[in-house]
Design a protein around this nucleic acid. Sequence first.
DNA 1: ATGGACCCTGTAGCAACTACAGGGTCAAGG
DNA 2: CCTTGACCCTGTAGTTGCTACAGGGTCCAT
Lengths: 141, 141
Amino acid sequence: MHLKIGDLANATGTKVETVRYYERIGLLPEPERTSSNYRSYSSGHLDRLNFIRHARGLGFDIADIRSLLGLADEPEGDCTEVDRIASGHLEAVERKISRLIVLRDELTRMIGQCRGGQVGSCRIMNVLADHSLCKGEHSAS
Amino acid sequence: MHLKIGDLANATGTKVETVRYYERIGLLPEPERTSSNYRSYSSGHLDRLNFIRHARGLGFDIADIRSLLGLADEPEGDCTEVDRIASGHLEAVERKISRLIVLRDELTRMIGQCRGGQVGSCRIMNVLADHSLCKGEHSAS
DNA sequence: ATGGACCCTGTAGCAACTACAGGGTCAAGG
DNA sequence: CCTTGACCCTGTAGTTGCTACAGGGTCCAT
């Protein structure tokens, strides 16, 4: 198992620059070097990079992944902390979804009110210019 | 109407630094200066900054807002382009929601399988280490 | 005249990469 | 043997949308 950086990148769907970036920030351990100073990765590196990419794919941030990797290195340990990190992330994702749904509904309503015509009378522009038009709020008439 | 930067920031719920940032990137026009070199804003600036903040609140990016502001400056123009920008943004939001829902479901399933115990046998860790465990994919046995 | 609240410029930091520039290495083909 | 092209190396700067200083100046009240 002696992978060059390009092989490792290919095997994990990562860009070469990203692999080097992970090394720079200490997420992926420094590999051996060949006599010509090329990085030479082992299957351990492959596993670790796969772990990182899967976690990133699930939206975990680097700090969380750092913690998870630390926990993975002690398989005898209790997995409460793993659960805590994952649950925290799940909650963050749920909050993000809620916020985006509010946004989506506001955008949908706004766009639905546009009847074309001049910019000056465009409902979209009106809403943006005066947010009180947005949620059924009305200025006193 | 002569607002100092702090007044403008307060009136729009923006940080002073952010106002200066918008000026630096050309989103907010440069205001007059007092004799002591303080920025002095008019109600036109206030309207424009409100527009920017509302649009940012709806998730439009700076490039979109730049376009929308350009269109707002020609109220006689046709609002097709406005509609196009808003619809494009709505679609992006919808894509983001879909992606996050997939994530949420994967995370929920993953976390639901965790029965506590050792890290080494934690389902969450297993999924992260080998993504093929994730969606009911099985390696040939 | 002195304190505190404001203002100024300019620069650096955040997340998580991505994209060069300007080199070195290596294997295959002519 | 030499060249060509695909790799590899380091180091730095760009992306997005701010935010946070540092190191000054101004203004007003006490």
